[in-house]
Amino acid sequence: MAEKEKMTLILFSGEMDKALAAFNIAVGGASSGMDVTIFFTFWGLNVIKKNEGSIKSKGIMRNMLNFMNRGGAKRLPLSKFHMMGVGKAMMQRLMKDINFPQVDELIKLAKELDVKFIACTTTIGMMGITKDAFIPEVDSFAGVATYIAEASKSKISLFI
């Protein structure tokens, strides 16, 4: 077959439902023979933060932000009907009923299918997060030029 077609996703949002949509499209694309890259930026970085340990940063504002914006695939709220976690728990129950994978399982599946994860260094710098706050599945840390280079060759490019 010819060279693989490309797909580039920007995951800007840090909510569980939006992450599910992004990973659904990513694993679908990878399963259809595409080269898929996900750029995680701003709140989207929460999806690829480790679930364990605390986020270390310097300065009171950054510490406050990172305390309130802890992140981790298992901590993502719902964008609608989160209801202090009650709505999320119900949604997860419904997902389980149809054997739908949770975000952390989709991350594993995406990596099995060679989906590339790139984390935005600008947000990381602004929020004062260190690289060790992220899961090892992250392939690289980069900026907009890398996104442009990838997206300009992509048939599908989405901002979620």
Partner: peptide
């Protein structure tokens, strides 16, 4: 019992 995208993922694998 599996929904999109899982059947496609299993098919591809």
């Amino acid at each position: 019992g599996l929904y999109c995208p899982m059947p496609i993922v299993h098919t591809a694998k």
